[in-house]
């Protein structure tokens, strides 16, 4: 079987697992940590799925993602630190 879909499925399960922290997280910072790790997992699975679909053009999405989710996280962090 193709390794890629398998890898992506495991990562999707890991995202669900990280969501537990988002549900439980006593503070917003904990939830932000969970968001950050979901982020990383999403980017990784996008790269993997690009290989699964055999389409090069899909990797662009991953780059956009890595760039842009960073900005969202920074905005949240800046607000959390009371600096916005």
């Amino acid at each position: 079987m193709s390794p890629w879909i398998f890898t992506a499925s495991i990562m999707a399960a890991l995202m669900l697992l990280a969501m537990v922290r988002m549900v439980k997280g006593p503070t917003s910072a904990d939830r932000l940590v969970a968001l950050d790790s979901i982020n990383t997992l999403v980017v990784a699975s996008m790269i993997v799925l690009a290989a699964a679909f055999r389409q090069v053009v899909f990797v662009d999405v991953a780059i956009v993602y890595a760039l842009l989710s960073y900005v969202g996280a920074l905005f949240i962090a800046k607000y959390l630190g009371g600096e916005l």
Partner: peptide, 28 residues
Amino acid sequence: LAAAIAFAAFSLLLAIEFYILQAPDVAI
């Protein structure tokens, strides 16, 4: 703030759902 964080995660997952439904334009 937590709701906004959850919304960001929601967008994230929505994007990857678009991605695996073969809509990379929409995913971007």
